[in-house]
Computed example of a mutant assay.
Amino acid sequence: MKRILLTTTLLLSALGMAACGNTTGDRALSGGAIGAGGGAAAGLLLGDPITGALIGGAIGAGAGALTDPDQIDLGTPIWRRN
């Protein structure tokens, strides 16, 4: 049951937060970072932050790569700002 709750939470979080940038690479990278952070936090609550970070990072990177800036846009990534 914990695994299903964790996976559902990570998936919804990643889809809701991914990603910043205009290129597929930027969006995958930022989505992965956001997903890993959210997954680690959720995993910490459920007892396994490492697995949570890995699952969240993978889902976030996938969501970031599969969406475009017209669907979800969190702005310019930190590494692209001057």
Rank of each mutant, 00 (worst) to 15 (best):
A28S: 08
N82R: 11
M17H: 13
L5A: 15
P77T: 02
I78L: 14
P69L: 08
P49H: 07
A14T: 09
T76K: 11
G16M: 12
D73H: 13
L29F: 13
G57I: 08
R80L: 13
I50L: 15
T8F: 15
N22T: 15
G37V: 04
A40C: 12
A36V: 06
G47A: 05
G35N: 03
R80V: 00
G75V: 02
A63E: 05
G75L: 06
I55R: 10
D26V: 00
Q71Y: 07
T9V: 15
L12D: 04
R27Y: 04
D70H: 11
T67D: 06
A41M: 13
G32T: 02
L12V: 14
G47L: 05
L74K: 07
A42H: 01
L29W: 12
R81C: 08
A40Y: 06
L29V: 15
W79G: 02
G64V: 02
G57Q: 07
G52Q: 02
P49R: 07
G35R: 01
L15F: 15
A61T: 10
L11M: 13
A40H: 10
I34C: 07
L46D: 00
I34E: 02
L54T: 01
T7L: 14
N82V: 07
D68S: 05
I34Q: 08
T8P: 05
L46N: 00
G64N: 04
L6I: 11
T51H: 03
G57T: 11
L6T: 03
T24Q: 13
L46W: 02
C20Y: 07
L11Q: 00
S13R: 00
L54W: 01
G43S: 08
D48K: 08
T24C: 09
G56W: 11
R81E: 09
R80M: 12
R81K: 11
G52R: 01
G38R: 03
T9W: 12
A58P: 01
P49V: 11
I59G: 04
T8I: 15
I59M: 12
A28M: 10
G35H: 03
T24E: 13
T7D: 03
I59S: 00
S30C: 12
I34D: 06
W79F: 15
G43N: 06
G16T: 08
I72Y: 06
Q71A: 13
I34M: 14
A42D: 04
L46A: 10
I55T: 14
W79R: 00
T7N: 08
T51F: 12
I4G: 03
S30K: 00
G62S: 11
G39Y: 08
I78H: 05
G43K: 01
G43C: 10
L6V: 07
L12H: 02
G43E: 08
A36C: 04
A65V: 07
Q71N: 00
A28F: 05
M17V: 09
N22C: 06
P49E: 08
K2C: 05
G39T: 05
L54V: 10
A41D: 04
T24D: 12
A61K: 09
G64R: 03
T7Q: 02
A18C: 10
S13E: 07
T67S: 14
I78A: 13
G57L: 10
R27V: 01
K2F: 13
A36K: 02
G56N: 07
G39H: 10
G75E: 06
T9C: 14
G64A: 09
R81A: 09
D73Y: 14
T67G: 07
P69F: 09
A18M: 09
G31T: 02
A65T: 01
A18T: 10
I59Q: 09
